[in-house]
């Protein structure tokens, strides 16, 4: 956190890999593979939303899917009504962010303790899930869009070029656009985390009492952090909705919230690269395991998670980084006897 973004090689490596995949994948992979990877990209954006509020604001939410679902339904309903997707896509960021700000205001200004915060975020998500599930009848429609209850909303428009509702993105274009968004979100969060606001957020994560004793308004900071995370989760929801052209109440499910927690935990809380890696690894695994018939996918995933948490309690990226640094330190010490001192390093 000390190093400015511009001087961190890890940052450039990440962006470069991103650009390489963005332009390379459509050339190297077939359509089916591209669509598979698109799914990882969407879920990575979703994972980053939690990675940010948890890792860099100390807010542990058990209901991140609340905003994912809200974004998905916002996009579905508004794009079906409007008949174009640019404004709905923007709305799917803005509306969840606003809802996150309102919920955050209630939680943080009400001085809810961390445990209650977890419970409240979970309960709010459950309420959404319940309500949307009960909107199957034709009377539940917003304009032209029927909410469809547990049946979900079909025929959600595919993203179109801004200003031209008939110019739909083909799968390769959609992949490129989503990859672009992922890179933008990653860069945006890195810059935000390195900014004064971000450093104060990390201070709040480390010690709320000290932050307020220095004169920082902890509540206001947390509301802003939470709202940003909610907006990003909402945008991921919209990406999901337009990618599948279908959405159902499971977007709001606790499973969807739990997945985000697992990706971030496995990849490493306090990093951004880690949770993306978590998505790719665990989604790929569950895809492979899904083809196995003899064992429940969830049991295996649960077991993998337990092993990961026990073996690498800090998560993948921080652990690998720690090994690399320790290895480098040993190598250097053999070169010349330098006193090893634990210094703070920046995280990707």
């Amino acid at each position: 956190m000390e190093k400015p973004v511009a001087k961190d090689p890890g940052f450039y490596i990440m962006v470069l890999i991103g650009l390489l995949i963005m332009f390379g994948a459509p050339i190297w992979f077939d359509l089916f593979a591209i669509m598979q990877v698109t799914q990882y990209v969407v879920l990575s954006v979703y994972a980053l939303s939690l990675a940010y509020i948890w890792g860099f604001g100390g807010i542990l939410s058990f209901g991140q899917s609340c905003f994912f679902g809200l974004g998905a339904y916002t996009f579905a309903v508004s794009s079906i009504n409007i008949g174009e997707t640019t404004f709905p896509f923007i709305l799917s960021f803005v509306l969840p962010a606003a809802f996150g700000a309102a919920l955050g205001y209630f939680m943080f200004y009400g001085r809810l303790s961390d445990v209650y915060l977890g419970v409240v975020t979970m309960v709010v998500t459950l309420i959404f899930w319940k309500i949307i599930n009960h909107t199957a009848g034709p009377e539940y429609s917003i304009g032209d869009a029927r909410l469809g209850g547990f049946n979900g909303i079909p025929s959600i428009p595919i993203l179109n070029m801004p200003g031209d509702p008939d110019a739909w993105l083909d799968p390769a274009q959609m992949f490129k656009f989503f990859m672009f968004l992922l890179i933008v979100v990653y860069i945006g969060l890195r810059v935000l985390i390195a900014s004064d606001f971000g450093r104060v957020s990390v201070g709040i994560r480390e010690n709320e009492t000290r932050s307020s004793l220095l004169g920082y308004d902890v509540r206001r900071h947390k509301v802003i952090i939470f709202a940003i995370g909610s907006g990003i989760a909402g945008m991921a929801g919209a990406m999901w909705a337009t990618y599948q052209t279908f959405i159902d109440p499971n977007a709001f499910s606790l499973e969807m919230s739990a997945k985000a927690l697992i990706w971030v935990m496995a990849g490493g809380v306090g990093t951004l690269a880690g949770p993306i890696l978590g998505v790719i690894l665990l989604q790929w695994l569950s895809l492979k395991l899904g083809t196995l018939q003899f064992l429940n996918n969830f049991v295996i995933l649960g077991a993998i998670l337990m092993v990961l948490v026990l073996a690498l309690p800090r998560g993948l990226v921080p652990s690998v980084k720690h090994w690399a640094l320790t290895g480098w330190e040993m190598f250097r010490r053999r070169e010349r006897a330098a006193p090893p001192a634990k210094e703070v390093t920046s995280d990707v």
Partner: peptide, 22 residues
Amino acid sequence: TQVPNLFNGLSAYENVRLSARR
């Protein structure tokens, strides 16, 4: 404070800088 309130995961410099930055 009696029990030091510090940003434990951050460097000493960053601790002090966050105070000065206010």
